[in-house]
Design a protein around this nucleic acid. Sequence first.
DNA 1: TGCACCCCAGAGAACGATCTCTGGCGCCAA
DNA 2: TTGGCGCCAGAGATCGTTCTCTGGGGTGCA
Lengths: 333, 333
Amino acid sequence: MTRPTLVDVARAAGVSRATAARVLAGGTNVDVRMSAAVAVAAEQLGYEANSAARMLRGGRAGAIALIVAFNELDSLGGTFFTSVLKGAAKGLYDAEVQPVLLPADQDGSDRIPRFLRSRAVDGAIIILQHEITHLAQALVASPVPIAWVGRPRVELAADAIVVDSDNYGGGRLAARALVESGRRRLAMIAGPRDMGPARDRIRGWRDELADLGIDRGPLAHGEFTLESGSVAMARLLDGQGDLDGIFASSDLMANGAMRVLQSSGRRVPSDVSVVGFDDVVIATTSDPPLTTIRQPLEDMGRVAAETLVAVVQQHEVDRQPILPTTLVRRQSA
Amino acid sequence: MTRPTLVDVARAAGVSRATAARVLAGGTNVDVRMSAAVAVAAEQLGYEANSAARMLRGGRAGAIALIVAFNELDSLGGTFFTSVLKGAAKGLYDAEVQPVLLPADQDGSDRIPRFLRSRAVDGAIIILQHEITHLAQALVASPVPIAWVGRPRVELAADAIVVDSDNYGGGRLAARALVESGRRRLAMIAGPRDMGPARDRIRGWRDELADLGIDRGPLAHGEFTLESGSVAMARLLDGQGDLDGIFASSDLMANGAMRVLQSSGRRVPSDVSVVGFDDVVIATTSDPPLTTIRQPLEDMGRVAAETLVAVVQQHEVDRQPILPTTLVRRQSA
DNA sequence: TGCACCCCAGAGAACGATCTCTGGCGCCAA
DNA sequence: TTGGCGCCAGAGATCGTTCTCTGGGGTGCA
């Protein structure tokens, strides 16, 4: 009933603990006959090293925490997280590191910092859209390395690990796409004022329009959600009814905006073109399918995992990679 | 730099290791002064017990694996998994057990069985819609207890842990809902023939219609996906054009069916009523919003977690709970 | 043939928390 | 005052793996 240990394997193979360990570690410097005997014994007994003992002896935990907001997982915005989560999990899988899920939004307890102190994981990847302030503060002082997916609002150390996409370039791409399809009466639905990525998209949008000599038009802020996109669109239409090109800073907001445009009698894209941001599932299922700025979400998760693993293993690596955004043409623009 | 150990705490408090351990374990039988000194020392040093050492000494791992298909996480069907995942993760959180994500679909290696043998987790929860056959076989012989969410195709031991919803009752509810809204020319789009839950829904549907004395109409099979729902609907319309009530065995298939109905000129629900199954996000965002049979996905995840934790702790518990399904009325029927 | 060096196997220690066992001290009763 | 009992703190062992150190044997060269 009890699981076989290294001693059992060694005894079965007629060698000492140390020799068995050497063989199983990928044994150089071991007699072939002994090596074979150990391999056979391990196979027959179904031996697998006890991870706790290995970890205790001084190795790494071989696990990395994924800190996510559980409550958002199965909401409409969930595909944002799940894509990053999927990439991160795959990256960790390839590095033979186990992903441990930690909820960021359960309560105000200090369980996450305590868990990180218990050495059960070698590091953590933070995947949050709406940040949890008290948590971010605690994480800045983490005893293990932290990788952020998307730059947070809190101040980070210069050598912090941050994986982001080219939000500024994405803003430029959106502006160029609308202008190239002949739109001139433009408006933007941006994300929250105090989020770095949201601001970068605004800057890119404005710089590109300035370069092209086109009026930048009005700006409304939303919270990246579908509803906030609808509200912002309604506000824009109140101010200036003859818009013909909308750049929304998330696909969800773009969808909310399209619904308002359509129920006001405008057709997309013949009357108004709409460009979104993110390229999540809803961009393909909306009517019409959404032209959008693609963030490589899965790649961002994967790169975060790879970068963090490299740091844990003390390899040199770029700690703040920026992944390119691209224009995906569908039918809304 | 090195993290404080129990010895450091004991030294700072001027007591022995054993006394410090007793205090931190929730110490009865310890002098109040010593107890206070230990608590203060632990607080000041920021002590947190090394999980590997605790685990090695004979305790439980304090972690449970969540086996999911990564590739489906961010697809349209993803909300099914993520809802269960969310419930399971919350249930584990409440039990102070860590969820460790394992991918079921990365390759054909034996990493999952090996991981389960390494004692890094005390059990595993399997969340799969499309099963991975070779894996299911390996899991039946798992060294740690396994909880299945949804009954798998493989044969399980009589004391296996299986959390399911009342698929049979759900089929009955769907039939009654369509009949009560006056529909008589019915058809069903079912799931794969060889899946137990899919078959249970068919049985419920047929039994209820038999009880009501209504013709059960034709049946088409799909794969739970949106596209397969469209295909099945087209097939049904080919056979018998005057249908007025459709029960689809998943919300995705119901959506696919609605699209085909609408593009054939039929209106939902005035010409044809449609009832789905699952109640995932797409049921609320479709046009019209979908009347559906709700599976309590998050509860299923939570119950799976709670049941598995109880079994690991050797408590008596119902190992095969069935959670109720309910009718959620929206606009498609 | 003898000496020295190298290679490889085994014994021992260490990781850190927890449980058992022992011993000492204090209190109460005879 | 002494013996016995009970309570509580500390020393030691233990979990299973890995790393270091030591010793023995074999081989090669002089």
